[in-house]
Design a protein around this nucleic acid. Structure first.
Lengths: 190, 190
DNA sequence: CAAAAATATTTACAATTGTTAATAATAAGG
DNA sequence: CCTTATTATTAACAATTGTAAATATTTTTG
């Protein structure tokens, strides 16, 4: 369980054995079934999740519709960052798309960790930085690309998700309707 | 010049007089005319700019077209964050839209500042956090809203820019063509 | 102030997307 | 294994957007 965690932290910051022991006491292993809401819109995110196995999606609710904002996969820290970082209620919901193996940590325990393991600051900053850059790339794709181009890029970079995630969820992630996604796929097949 | 700077840092972190003196020696005051490129696509961003007066736009180049990704105004730190944070070449260009009064700092001088003023870490983190949240809000607007709704929100939140910035620049910022923006404005007038 | 450049709007048409509803295909649950 | 629920595709039509080109309008600059 933790080996996978360390493998992903390795390139960011090397960890000593002492630090690993602290981490293993701080993060709680949790198995979560499919379709479980980890965070409800309107609530404050109290936890951060490192995904060892499974998928979590973040979505907004608009006029009764669920509109996907992000799909977290293995090796990522999933959370509603706005809500978690500011400890205020947000408009995002988190839900598992598959059965998940998670490493969970609370906001308050994370603050302790910052003091116990100073290196944690670096890790947190780099993770946030990475997340920011990822948001920036997505944003630029919305500004620069047509829905069809956006789908093509998605296919190249996250094609595996096409097999794991219902297409109507991917459609809303790309900012289009399922109908339009289906048409784009048909168009590209030829 | 620096009063405006301090006024904006105040809510983030209070500064002592000693710290202010260091800041005043670290940041270089610079007047830049309109239409000056502060960063070229393909180059690495070596500087960060705090805007005291004026506007700077960030844009991408696609098939000869300049497509606006962000418009920085007074009180913001302008930069290509990806390129600046990672010190690697990026695809973003920065250009002044008006004559600007800037407080400029280099990447290396900023690293020194982190050591001279530990509080600087907090400021940097909060600024980055703010920028991330802003990107997240923009991103969600692309996923959730139609171009028309996006324009309405822009009008409410950044309406002042409609008078300061050419509309074709705002159009590309909203992910639409100038023609479409003109039609939306016409539609909403009634 | 006049000519040139930049910006904004309009028109006409094609392409794409949204919407709604029906149908087909697939997956899940008792 | 069959029924039900979920997901995916298709069709038909309306609305919106993109594209290209012409025309206004405004701003810049010599």
């Amino acid at each position: 369980m933790f080996e996978f965690f360390y493998k992903h932290l390795q390139p960011i910051a090397a960890l000593t054995n002492e630090e690993k022991i602290i981490l293993e006491s701080a993060f709680i292993i949790r198995q979560v079934p499919k379709k479980v809401k980890l965070l409800q819109e309107g609530k404050t995110a109290r936890e951060l999740y490192f995904i060892v196995k499974g998928l979590i999606r973040l979505f907004y609710t608009k006029e009764g519709e669920e509109i996907t904002g992000y799909i977290f996969k293995e090796g990522l820290f999933a959370s509603s960052y706005e809500s978690f970082l500011r400890q205020t209620p947000g408009i995002q919901t988190l839900e598992t798309l598959e059965e998940c193996d998670l490493l969970t940590i609370s906001y308050s325990r994370l603050q302790q960790l910052y003091e116990e393991i100073p290196k944690m600051h670096i890790i947190a900053r780099k993770v946030a930085e990475q997340r920011f850059i990822s948001a920036q790339i997505m944003l630029s794709s919305f500004i620069l690309d047509s829905p069809e181009e956006r789908y093509k890029k998605f296919e190249q970079e996250q094609g595996d998700l096409l097999l794991r995630v219902p297409h109507h969820i991917i459609a809303s992630f790309l900012g289009i309707t399922p109908v339009s996604l289906s048409r784009i796929r048909k168009r590209l097949k030829k």
